[in-house]
Simulated scan of single mutants.
Amino acid sequence: MKFEDFFKGGCKILQSAIEGKALDPWIQNYLDDNPELIESFSVFLNWLNEDERHILQNLIYNPDLILDKLSKSAKAVCHNDLYFPNVGWDNDELLLIDWEFVGIYPTAWDIYNLYSGIPCPDLKEEEAFEVYFKGVESGGLKVDRTSWIKTYRQLDIISILAFELKDLVPRAFSSKSSLPEHKKEFIKDHIRNIVRSVIHTYETLTKE
């Protein structure tokens, strides 16, 4: 699957949640398996303030706003499924498995998946970036750090819209969620933070 298809597919699911119906036949199967998404997404949108709701919906309905920016970023061969279960060690050698989604993607994509998908609270984001930069540069390659980090932020929007919101919103906002209230509030705080991250990155992009 092409990189942009992951993003557009995720946005199409959120569009369907907003519209209250499946916009493509394959989405109906997803909604059948996740019947709480439409109800909870309506509650979630009303929970946002007007500016947040406007920006978020603008991105959901116009994924090319981000993809056009990413089209100008550096690309490389990426694993594209780099998270904890697919990473291991063979003696002292790093081992990656499950290469079925390998393809050409933005250079920051694997690092984004790796850092966001492997719990490592002692390694701050900036430190993780530096480990990557030094590793690449030790091989004789140069990294435009400013451009790379900008791409990383754009990928954050893609991950949030394509994956995180459709998974998190039903847990916190569905009337059928079985989570205790304190856990719902914890997830809502996290959602608030990622929405702010999306808006900050969006505002940065629109100023360029």
Rank of each mutant, 00 (worst) to 15 (best):
I157K: 07
T201C: 06
D144Q: 05
I60N: 11
N113L: 15
E50W: 07
S40H: 13
P35T: 01
D24G: 00
N34I: 05
P35G: 08
V131F: 08
H54S: 14
P106T: 02
K188N: 04
L168P: 03
A22T: 02
L123Q: 07
F3H: 08
S174V: 00
D68A: 03
Y105L: 03
G139T: 04
D51R: 15
K69F: 11
N34R: 04
Y105R: 11
A128F: 15
D189R: 15
V77W: 12
F173P: 01
L82M: 09
G135A: 04
H190Y: 15
N58M: 10
K183P: 05
P121Y: 01
K183C: 00
L56A: 04
I187D: 12
N58Q: 09
G140A: 03
S174F: 04
F129V: 07
Q15V: 06
S175T: 13
E125M: 14
P25V: 04
L94C: 03
D144R: 06
F6K: 15
P63N: 09
V43F: 07
N91D: 12
R53E: 06
S159R: 13
P170Y: 06
F163C: 03
Y105Q: 10
Q28R: 10
L45R: 06
T146P: 00
F129D: 01
A22S: 12
S116V: 08
I199Y: 12
N29W: 03
L165F: 12
K12M: 08
W26N: 13
N80E: 05
F7W: 10
G20A: 04
L161C: 12
L205C: 01
I104K: 12
D81S: 15
K69W: 10
L95N: 11
V77F: 15
